[in-house]
Write a protein that binds this DNA or RNA. Structure first.
Length: 572
RNA sequence: UGCGGGAUGGUGUAGCGGUAGCACCCAUGACUCUGGAUCAUGUUGCCUAGGUUCGAAUCCUAGUCCCGCAGCCA
């Protein structure tokens, strides 16, 4: 069924599901889950997982749960829970009534642990963390049995109960699975199932002083929820035998039958060029104030991308295009940028904004006259209509649209040369006024060709360049924040050169322009509104924006052929 | 000298014995009242060595390289 449907991207996990469906595995059910730990904000890498899990469910008439993996209260907070919910929703996915927490199952985990103890498959171990490490052996040498491994069931039961009752200090004892200290897979060398931890949990408060480990809690949570395909990242590959061991040794309907139990499947996490993706590193950037919070528009977090102006559609499209596989890779950030451009090209209204203004006086245009000229809101989408923009004798154009001594391929304004002002007139540069001291260009005096008015009968005359502009008397002041990559190198994670990832931070990742001027139609622009500033890029109104000063974030620039020409000529 | 994974253009991803495809990037041209968009064209690839086969990215053998694993984190 999916074979003929191009809307369903095929990847090796979909292939597994297709096969399972064919064999009526799990009774034809497909049930996935997105299981974040609420210990930080979600990033674009999580978006890949969210799109995968929810997308697979959607594509196969299945369900996807949102489940918080909150088994370690020392790192987790409600703030993160709330942000994660908001981010998943914003991305466009709906868990309906299936919002779960691993902490919902604390009682059950405890019962299953008791069950394991009774079956002689788990024991309380008094070794210190240090000793446990030593007994574990190394990658090449087997471990050795803990002296507590042979405790009786009764003793283990008693001790575990007292662990729960709070009789022992933090870290003094753990519950361990009794598997095989000589296993070549370290995860099977009697892994810890429960530890003593006196930390207030964000949901269960001080009800518990013992908490289950991921390896114990996760397979049980999956089984309890009837998850069929438990998708996680590559580093858990080695944990799969333990995942299966837990399911093999507990008594849950969904875990009993090997044919209908959750199956763990691993895929490669997303890496993006010029950024970092680990929560630890992102937190470091936030806490040490290299950026202004988790939602700093330079961050690869969902909240950062949202504030920057990325659309959920663009992010979903991106996640679909990058594919799903088992090989580690680094996706070019240019693909993400392409996805927003493509989305916004269709839907963002065009508007004129001058970032670095250069004053232009049109000497032969009547003083005091104002013409309201009609212009397209989006030439890609005529249904978005037109609007009127004011034109008058004094206008501003972009500083970089004028050069006193232009190189060959420069099509814009220069002394004696003409350009078309978008949706207005052709003007000619007659005179350059400079500061006598500094030589800085202060303003231009131009003349316009009254016959050349856009849309007019004689407007057909061609000139090479077209510039955007704003009327001086009508323009609104704005601040514009231009962003560049947060890091200067493609792979800041690579610490092979001995440098900390922060050494690669781009000192110019944020440039604030405060003297910008935008057309008056933007007066009512609301935070979150996105526009294409003609010839420059896509911009989004920032929440910092006020009635007095509009604040825009540059989402992404337009592709810039001229910039490329300049670059190659400089380097060539 | 352990175990588990993975190697397809610059990047990402298909291909499951029958002409190596798609997307991004890059380049060239057309068009353009956005040097945008659009359209057309193009460069670049199966880790290595053997083998099986009429035919191998795909199957077999032997290597090489890369990633992960020794938390009471997830």
């Amino acid at each position: 069924m999916t074979d003929n449907n191009p809307a369903v991207p095929v990847n090796f996990i979909q292939n597994i599901i297709t096969e399972d469906l064919k064999n009526n595995k799990n009774g034809g059910r497909v049930h996935t889950r997105f299981p974040p730990e609420p210990n930080g904000y979600l990033h674009i890498g999580h978006a890949k997982s969210i799109c995968l899990n929810f997308g697979l469910a959607l594509a196969n008439a299945g369900l996807c749960n949102l489940r918080f993996d909150d088994t370690n209260p020392s790192k987790e907070e409600v703030e993160y829970v709330e942000s994660i919910k908001a981010d998943v929703r914003w991305l466009g996915f709906d868990w309906e009534d299936r919002l779960f927490y691993a902490s919902d199952y604390f009682d059950k985990f405890y019962e299953y642990a008791v069950e394991l103890i009774k079956a002689g498959k788990a024991y309380v171990c008094d070794l210190s963390p240090q000793e446990i490490r030593e007994y574990r052996g190394t990658l090449t040498e087997p471990g050795k049995d803990s002296p507590y491994r042979t405790r009786t069931v009764e003793e283990n039961l008693d001790l575990f109960e007292r662990m729960r009752a709070g009789e022992f200090p933090d870290g003094s004892r753990v519950l361990r699975a009794k598997i095989d200290m000589a296993s070549p897979n370290l995860n099977l060398r009697d892994p810890v199932l429960y530890r003593i931890l006196r930390t207030t949990h964000h949901r269960t408060g001080d009800q518990w002083c013992i908490y289950p480990m991921y390896d114990f809690a996760h397979p049980i949570s999956d089984a309890l929820e009837g998850i069929t395909h438990s998708i996680c990242t590559l580093e858990f590959e080695d944990h799969r035998p333990l995942y299966d061991w837990v399911l093999d040794n507990i008594n849950i309907d969904y875990a009993k039958d090997v044919k209908s139990r959750p199956q763990q499947i691993e895929f490669a996490r997303l890496n993006l060029s010029y950024t970092v993706m680990s929560k630890r590193k992102l937190r470091e950037l936030v806490e040490q104030q290299y950026v202004n919070g988790w939602d700093d528009p330079r961050m690869p977090t969902i909240s950062g991308l949202r504030r920057r102006g990325y659309t959920p559609e663009a992010i979903r499209d991106f996640c679909e295009r990058i594919g799903v596989a088992k090989r580690n890779s680094v996706v070019d950030i240019a693909l993400l940028e392409h996805c927003v451009r493509e989305d916004l090209n269709q839907r963002a209204p065009r508007v004129m904004a001058v970032l670095r203004p250069l004053r232009v006086i049109i000497d032969n245009y009547p003083e005091g006259q104002v013409e309201w000229l009609e212009t397209d809101n989006n030439p890609e989408n005529p249904s978005m209509g037109t609007r009127k923009i004011p034109f008058s004798r004094v206008i501003y154009i972009e500083q970089e649209d004028f050069m006193e001594n232009p190189p060959k391929k420069f099509f814009r304004l220069a002394p004696g040369r003409e350009i078309r002002l978008k949706s207005a007139y052709i003007i000619k540069c007659e005179r350059v006024v400079k500061d006598e001291q500094t030589g800085k260009i202060l303003e231009l005096h131009c003349t316009y060709d009254p016959e050349s008015k856009s849309g007019g009968v004689n407007s057909g005359r061609k000139v090479k360049g077209t510039s955007h502009w704003v009327s001086a008397a009508h323009a609104l002041k704005a601040e514009v924040r231009l962003y560049d990559q947060l890091f200067q190198v493609e792979n800041p994670d690579n610490e092979a050169d001995g440098a900390d990832f922060k050494a690669h931070l781009n000192p110019n990742s944020l440039e604030r322009l405060t003297g910008c001027l935008v057309e008056p139609s933007l007066a009512d622009a609301q935070p979150g509104n996105r526009y294409q500033f003609l010839r420059q890029g896509y911009f989004c109104v920032d929440p910092d924006s006020t009635k007095e000063t509009l604040v825009f974030n540059r989402i992404v620039s337009l592709r810039d052929t001229w910039a490329k020409i300049q670059k190659t000529e400089k380097s060539g």
